[in-house]
Simulated assay, not measured.
Amino acid sequence: MRVGVPIFLFLAAAGFHTALTASLESAEKEDTFVGLEQLSDLQKRDQEEFEAAQMSEAVQDENTEEENDTQEEDMTDRDGNVEAVQHESESDEDVDGMRQTREHLEANVEEADETTNLAEVE
């Protein structure tokens, strides 16, 4: 019996050690699983935030493009208005030139008429 007690104590200690080791490994696996689950949640949140940032960036880019298009249209309208004003001023200059030419011709005709009238009177 004396030999049986130490063997029994040895086997009990070995069993206790095995049970304790298995328990610790199980706890580590659970922590790892919980850690992976938490990591997975963090990755999901990061992915959602990334997608939201991309969406807002796309919307912002679209708004910027629309603003640029609007600005280009405004500039085109302004350029068209400037060209129209230039064309009108050129037309006004042409009209003024024609008016001066007509007045000059009328003056010449009047002088010619006066000359003709004077020649007839003499």
Rank of each mutant, 00 (worst) to 15 (best):
M1T: 01
M1Q: 05
M1I: 01
G4D: 09
V5I: 12
P6E: 04
I7K: 10
I7L: 11
F8N: 07
F8Q: 10
L9N: 02
F10Q: 01
L11P: 00
L11Y: 02
A12F: 12
A13Q: 04
A13I: 10
A13D: 01
A14T: 03
G15K: 06
F16C: 11
H17A: 14
T18V: 08
A19F: 09
L20F: 14
E25P: 00
S26V: 02
S26T: 11
K29D: 12
K29N: 09
D31P: 00
T32V: 04
F33I: 08
G35L: 09
E37I: 00
Q38T: 08
L39Q: 12
D41A: 08
Q43S: 05
Q43R: 13
Q43T: 04
Q43V: 03
K44W: 01
R45V: 02
D46V: 01
Q47W: 06
E48L: 05
E51V: 13
Q54F: 03
E57H: 11
E57K: 15
E57C: 04
E57V: 11
A58H: 03
V59W: 01
V59N: 05
D61Y: 06
E62R: 13
E65A: 13
E66M: 08
N68A: 15
D69M: 06
E72R: 07
D74F: 15
T76D: 06
T76V: 12
D77E: 13
D77N: 12
R78W: 12
D79M: 04
G80M: 14
V82Y: 09
E83N: 04
V85H: 03
Q86W: 04
Q86R: 14
H87M: 13
E88S: 10
E88I: 10
S89I: 14
E90M: 08
V95M: 09
D96T: 11
G97P: 00
G97C: 02
R102E: 14
E103A: 07
E103H: 03
E103N: 04
E106K: 02
E106G: 00
N108S: 14
V109Q: 10
E110Q: 11
E110D: 14
E111A: 08
E111H: 07
E111N: 06
A112H: 10
A112R: 12
D113K: 08
D113R: 09
T116S: 12
N117C: 04
L118R: 13
E122A: 03
